[in-house]
């Protein structure tokens, strides 16, 4: 009896199988295929970098000086490039992040809907589209010509690249801070600067941190701005970022990629793996921070 009733109620209201629904399904399958088309090469790139890079990397490889190109991969290492990448990225972060956060504060807290604010926001968007090589040429023209190649010049070029990314991501995070918090603080008689520094910024801090880390991950792998600012090619570590040519992992890969020597190529793959690992660690930390934000805001 019960089964009979349910059978009667189960009238199939779906469209009979037709060309229309088949077409819709074909399109869905095509979308999935599009995704697969993208991940296969990505998987290949990562696989190649890991398999070729891992065979190069040893303790001595990470800490040794860079040898001549003809030397096999077992001789020397890439320490000078690691030092350069870490120092230059750190310096660029120190320069660009405070300025970027301040600019975002102006756009979101002080600017209102004024024309100037909208221009700054729009131009920050446009600036994210300026090719990284242009930032290198720019710093070359205003800095390197007068003061010579240095890690600082590289950090300035990377900073120009990082600034608009930090501004836009910080602004998005500041927008998420509820106005109720600001109003409560104003009601207590706090000035705008105080409200921003002690209420708004702490509330948005984890979001801002995650945005900054994403920008760091992107910038740490850049090569084009460094070619014109740090020169590269140094074989011993230069711990002084303010004077003298420096090296970076990305520069080492670029200079070794077209080398006919297997040792130099091996060092390029090892450096590529090191670079990707550095970027991935930054990315994972950023994701952890973001997921904490998501949990807190629930």
């Amino acid at each position: 009896m019960a089964t009979a009733v349910t059978k009667q109620q189960q009238v199939d209201l779906r469209e009979p199988r037709s060309w229309r629904s088949a077409k819709s399904r074909i399109m869905t399958v095509l979308m999935v295929i599009a995704f697969v088309v993208v991940i296969i090469p990505l998987g290949f790139v990562l696989y190649t970098v890991v398999s070729k890079g891992a065979s190069a990397i040893t303790g001595r490889f990470l800490t040794g000086d860079i040898p001549f190109n003809v030397a096999p991969v077992t001789v020397g290492g890439i320490w000078p490039a690691i030092v350069g990448t870490l120092l230059i990225t750190a310096l660029c972060t120190v320069i660009a992040v405070p300025i970027g956060i301040l600019a975002a504060i102006y756009v979101n807290e002080y600017g209102g809907n004024r024309l100037l604010t909208r221009i700054i926001r729009f131009m920050a968007d446009v600036m994210t589209g300026v090719p990284s090589i242009i930032m290198g040429l720019f710093i070359f023209s205003i800095w390197v010509i007068h003061f010579g190649f240095s890690g600082l010049a590289g950090a300035l070029a990377l900073g120009c690249l990082m600034l608009p990314i930090v501004i836009r991501s910080t602004e998005e995070m500041l927008k998420l801070v509820p106005d109720v918090l600001r109003e409560a603080s104003y009601a207590l008689g706090a000035s705008k600067a105080r409200v921003t520094a002690t209420v708004v910024l702490p509330a948005a801090m984890s979001g801002i941190t995650s945005g900054v880390l994403l920008a760091v991950a992107r910038v740490s792998g850049e090569t084009a701005p460094l070619v014109f600012t740090i020169l590269g090619g140094t074989t011993t570590p230069n711990y002084n970022v303010f004077t003298g040519a420096n090296n970076a992992l990305s520069m080492l890969i670029f200079q070794n990629a077209e080398s006919p020597y297997t040792g130099a190529q091996g060092r390029a793959w090892g450096a590529a793996l090191t670079l990707i690992v550095i970027a991935l660690i930054t990315l994972v930390v950023a994701r952890l921070v973001t997921s904490r934000v998501a949990r807190l805001s629930q």
Partner: peptide, 13 residues
Amino acid sequence: LLAVVPSVVWGLW
């Protein structure tokens, strides 16, 4: 992740 792979690594590969 695609965006994190540096340009120079794409070039090398």
